[in-house]
Amino acid sequence: MKITLSNFSGIPIYEQIKEQIKAQILSGALTEGEKLPSLRELARDLRISVLTTTRAYTDLEQEGYIATIQGKGCYVLGESSELLKEQLLREMEQGLISAIKASRAAGLDISEVHKTLDYFNKEESND
């Protein structure tokens, strides 16, 4: 796991930790079942408050990225996690709703949205 914190980004520290762990789970850098450092280890290593790491981990847990097993530690749930899937599904729906809203505001036909979606899908998979 790799975490780099900036004191001057204006983004709260817990948010930075959360986003970076999330990104690493989604990119596959952190795989399912992998053990994360404990709250206190992470706080010590980054020289930050335990409450800050607690908040980051709690958020990640609620969003289904990680799970805490009492007395054992924190583990990456991975992309197969039901919770995570649900979370991602919700994110996708939100994105689509705002795309539809924007297209309506711009007076575009829904077929335009489909076309654009196909286009981006192709672009993404080419990457």
């Binding site: 206190r40 280890e41 706080a43 010590r44 020289r47 930050i48 408050s49 335990v50 409450l51």
Partner: peptide, 28 residues
Amino acid sequence: LTNFIQDGERSVLFSTHITSDLERIADF
């Protein structure tokens, strides 16, 4: 200090006027 509190049982009360020390590690 951060090592000291690793086991979750031990605590620190840290009085200071050099607050950059606390900016990072203090919980309360």
